[in-house]
């Protein structure tokens, strides 16, 4: 799983790429948290899930974990471009009430 940050004005896009499961979420957490710190002054953060090829419930924990960190800096978080299967899990978990889909 890879994470790439891209800024557009004062908005940070975090592009997730690859498979998110319990095993590969470990290293991704550390990297994602460094990016949260770096972009703590953003107006908002948007996770782009277009290139997530697989995600299980680990992904829910991963996104909520990063959401909590962004919250500390008062940065609202949004989700965008989930594939159908990713959307199904996210919808089911109720995560869109915390991080709206845009």
């Amino acid at each position: 799983m890879q994470i790439l940050a891209e800024t557009q004005g004062n908005v940070v896009y975090l592009h997730l790429r690859g498979e998110i499961d319990e095993h590969n979420a470990h290293s991704a957490r550390t990297k994602a948290d460094r990016l949260v710190e770096r972009y703590a002054g953003s107006e908002r953060a948007i996770f782009d899930l277009r290139e997530v090829s697989f995600m299980d419930s680990t992904g829910i924990g991963f996104l909520i974990g990063r959401y909590k960190r962004f919250q500390r800096f008062g940065v609202p978080v949004y989700l965008t471009n989930p594939t159908n299967s990713t959307d199904k899990i996210l919808e089911m978990s109720g995560i869109y009430t915390l991080m709206p889909k845009v």
């Binding site: 957490r29 299980d56 419930s57 680990t58 829910i60 924990g61 991963f62 909520i64 974990g65 199904k88 899990i89 089911m92 978990s93």
Partner: peptide, 15 residues
């Protein structure tokens, strides 16, 4: 404390 969502069995039942 491990960022577990606790959704594993719910997902298995739903899917």
């Amino acid at each position: 404390n491990d960022e577990r969502s606790g959704m594993g069995f719910t997902i298995m039942q739903t899917f």
